[in-house]
Each structure stands twice: as structure tokens, then as C-alpha cells.
């Protein structure tokens, strides 16, 4: 992006044109974040709108201790998690008390299938993409938010920790758990695909 960097001063002063530039710059990422955490297009749109409405109100008091991106992602992630909580109050309640995810330790791999040799076209098919989305949506909110920020939004471990307001060690633990669970789901899926591919060849 060759555009001039956003002026915090103008944003704090309520400059509409500068706010519109901020929306143009960050709305695609905020939308994707909402979509991947909530796994629902309407919820993602609500998250998107609420994030910028809240940002507009809060900007005058924004001190710039974190970057603008980190700050926006924090608002968006909290909104998305709130949407999930509203939808499934009973599930998230359990998780809030101590986060069962971290007490279980690291899941032991069950699927030992080497699917790395599958043709590239197989891995990039729309069916595979749908399976990847399903697998990610199957993660608990705590694991999913870490995975989305780190692996889909491309934030570093430190930035992810900053957005979520947790220690880096917590991010690392959740990340390895999330990735191993996704590996498990994709291995089950690709294992079946490999059987089909070899059956077709016979």
C-alpha cells in the first residue's frame, strides 16, 4: 500500500475523511476476522459494523499505546466472541471457568496418514476449502480466535497475545492445540480422498 499513513491526530479529532480511509484500509481484514471466528456471514457483517461504530466513538480517547490495527482487531475479536457467547451461552460458560482446553494438555495424534503427496489440485478444490472451514469452525472459541489471528490474519505470537490480552505462552499453547486439531480433521478428510484417488486409478 503506497498511501500515506493514517494520521492519529486527524482520527482523534473526528476527521471523517481520515476515518473513511481507515475503514477502507482495515474493513476487509476485520470482515474476514469476523467471518472466520463466527463462521456466519450475517454475524460477520454485524461484527464489522459494530467494530467501526465502537472505534468511531472510542477514537478520541485512543492513546496509541498499541497500533491502530491491534486496537481494531481487539475490538473486532471481542465483538465476535460476544456474538458466539450470545448464540451458545451454555458452551461458553463452561469454557470461561478455567478454560477446559488448556487443562487437557496437548491432544495425542490419532490420524497417521501421510497425505502430503496428494495432487495440488486436490488440496485447492472448493470441497477442500469447505472442509477446512468446517474444521476451523469446530474449534472452541478460545482456540479459534488464536488460530484466526495468528494463521489467517498473519499476526505474530506477540501481536496475537496483545489483541487477546493474554500471555504469549497462552497463545503458544492454544496455537499448538488448534493446529493439531486441524491436522487431525484434515488428515481424516485427506485419508479418505487418498483411498478414493487410488480406487479410481485401479
Amino acid at each position: 500500500m503506497n498511501e500515506a499513513p493514517l494520521s492519529l491526530e486527524a482520527l482523534r479529532a473526528g476527521d471523517r475523511a481520515e476515518f473513511a480511509r481507515m475503514v477502507a484500509q482495515y474493513s476487509p481484514q476485520v470482515y474476514r476476522l469476523g467471518l472466520k471466528i463466527t463462521a456466519d456471514e450475517q454475524d460477520a457483517e454485524d461484527v464489522l459494523q459494530e467494530t467501526f461504530v465502537r472505534a468511531m466513538k472510542a477514537l478520541p480517547g485512543f492513546e496509541g499505546r498499541s497500533s491502530l490495527a491491534t486496537w481494531l482487531f481487539r475490538i473486532a475479536t471481542n465483538e465476535a466472541l460476544m456474538v458466539l457467547r450470545r448464540k451458545k451461552p451454555q458452551v461458553t460458560l463452561v469454557e470461561e471457568t478455567g478454560d477446559a482446553d488448556e487443562e487437557e494438555g496437548v491432544p495425542h495424534p490419532q490420524q497417521i496418514v501421510d497425505w502430503c503427496c496428494l495432487p495440488e489440485a486436490e488440496m485447492l478444490s472448493s470441497e477442500t476449502k469447505a472442509e477446512m472451514d468446517r474444521a476451523a469452525a469446530g474449534l472452541s472459541p478460545a482456540l479459534r480466535s488464536v488460530f484466526v489471528l495468528r494463521d489467517l490474519q498473519g499476526l505474530s505470537v506477540r501481536e496475537t497475545a496483545e489483541v487477546l490480552g493474554v500471555a504469549e505462552a497462552v497463545v503458544k499453547t492454544r496455537l499448538v492445540r488448534a493446529r493439531l486439531k486441524l491436522r487431525e480433521a484434515l488428515s481424516a478428510y485427506f485419508g479418505e480422498r487418498m483411498q478414493k484417488v487410488s480406487a479410481d486409478e485401479e
Binding site: 490420524q111 496418514v113 501421510d114 497425505w115 502430503c116 488440496m123 477442500t128 477446512m132 476451523a136 488460530f147 494463521d151 489467517l152 493446529r179 493439531l180 486441524l182 491436522r183 484434515l186 488428515s187
Partner: peptide, 9 residues
């Protein structure tokens, strides 16, 4: 397969 999973995403 873990590395490939992360790459795909």
C-alpha cells in the same frame, strides 16, 4: 502433515 495443514490455511 502439521506443516502442510498450517501452510494450507
Amino acid at each position: 502433515t502439521l506443516r502442510r495443514t498450517v501452510e494450507l490455511y
